[in-house]
């Protein structure tokens, strides 16, 4: 067994790109669910919004605008415009689409609508209809939008960095990701400690009580939905830049539930929970994957138990087992407070 590659894989999970992506999405979800009590089962669509906002601006909408209006927008202009569209415009649109009809209703209506909007968007984007494919390139996805980003990288593309964990481009993405993540966590920390955050918590506890004290619950829920969506979009954008492709099937429903797992693992309603949760989740997933693969190939695990092709499924079985144990023995997550959680039952 090659323990070196197992450890490397573990660390790539703990601090690498997937960790950053899911930590950001989970910070958004924490704002939705942990603080405001909004059941969002469509965080993947906010991530897709970030990815497609950038990819479409650079790869399809921008060039089309250049052709049709005779503009001469450079790729880097389009890249920054794409960041704006992906981080602000698309998430706000999605939040309005989900929130306007449902935020006045009980929490479960939002849950239904978010999961529906996420799937509708993904299925529309992967549609082979020429009129849609022209903009989204169907299931193959859009490429050629991350050049501007990597051009800014000070790292050599041929070298490896941080104990050989990352290539130059990965290193640049991960460093930018860490900075963005730290910024997001700081903003979240400030928000939660402010009177604004206090209103969110009040709405989570009892909307009518908040309303009787003069708080516009609908408006606050919408603000939380938008803001949490923006954090998710930043995560999705980093995912797309990391893969250098925006593909519909990178934003399937499973992605939403991975975000949920990261949040629940950390403990909903705590600022550091999404970060530590996502880190542990990806650390463990990477570790079990490489560990089992190495075990199978070194014949430590005999073929009668599992073969190399089954490793992918087995690690999710292990994850399921882990979640069941978490729910049984530490339902409040790593940072959660059991006494606080039990207050609900009184």
């Amino acid at each position: 067994m090659d323990w070196g590659s197992i450890i490397e894989s573990l660390f790539r999970g703990l601090i690498g790109e997937s960790f950053i992506v899911f930590a950001l999405a989970a910070i958004g979800l924490n704002l939705h669910f942990g603080y405001t009590g909004l059941l969002n089962f469509g965080q993947a669509v906010f991530m897709a919004a970030g990815a497609y906002g950038l990819a479409m601006m650079v790869a399809t909408i921008g060039p089309a605008a250049n052709r049709n209006f005779g503009w001469d927008l450079s790729e880097s202009t389009l890249f920054w415009a794409g960041i704006f569209v992906g981080v602000i415009v698309f998430p706000v649109i999605f939040a309005f689409v989900m929130g306007i009809p449902t935020l006045r209703l009980r929490a479960d209506y939002l849950a239904i609508v978010t999961i529906a909007v996420a799937e509708i968007f993904r299925i529309v984007v992967r549609s082979p209809q020429p009129g849609i494919k022209k903009w989204t390139n169907s299931s193959d996805g859009l490429t050629g939008f991350s050049g501007t980003f990597y051009d800014m990288s000070p790292f050599g593309t041929q070298d490896r960095y941080l104990f050989n964990l990352f290539t130059g481009n990965q290193m640049f993405l991960v460093i930018v990701g860490w900075v963005v993540l730290a910024f997001a966590a700081a903003v979240c920390w400030l928000l939660i400690r402010s009177p604004w955050g206090r209103v969110l918590k009040a709405i989570r506890e009892d909307e009518d009580a908040a309303r009787s004290l003069g708080k516009n619950a609908y408006s606050y829920k919408m603000q939380a939905l938008i803001l949490g969506g923006i954090f998710g979009a930043v995560g999705g954008m980093i995912r797309a830049i990391g893969f250098s492709v925006a593909q519909p099937d990178n934003f399937i429903t499973d992605v939403t539930f991975f975000v949920w797992v990261a949040l629940i693992l950390g403990g909903a309603g705590k600022v550091l929970a999404p970060i530590v949760g996502a880190s542990l989740l990806y650390g463990l997933l990477n570790f079990s994957d490489t560990f089992l693969r190495e075990g199978v190939s070194a014949d430590v695990i005999p073929d009668s138990i599992m073969t190399g092709t089954q490793v992918g499924q087995v690690r999710f079985m292990l994850m399921g087992l882990g979640l069941a144990l978490l729910a049984a023995f530490r339902p409040q997550g790593i940072f959660g407070n059991k006494e606080e959680m039990a207050l609900d039952d009184r």
Binding site: V187, L190, L191, R193, S194, P195, W196, G197, R198, V199, K215, Q223, L227
Partner: peptide, 11 residues
């Protein structure tokens, strides 16, 4: 004042 989103991040 701190219940407005933009002001809330400026303690």
């Amino acid at each position: 004042k701190g219940e407005t989103l933009w002001r809330s991040v400026l303690p």
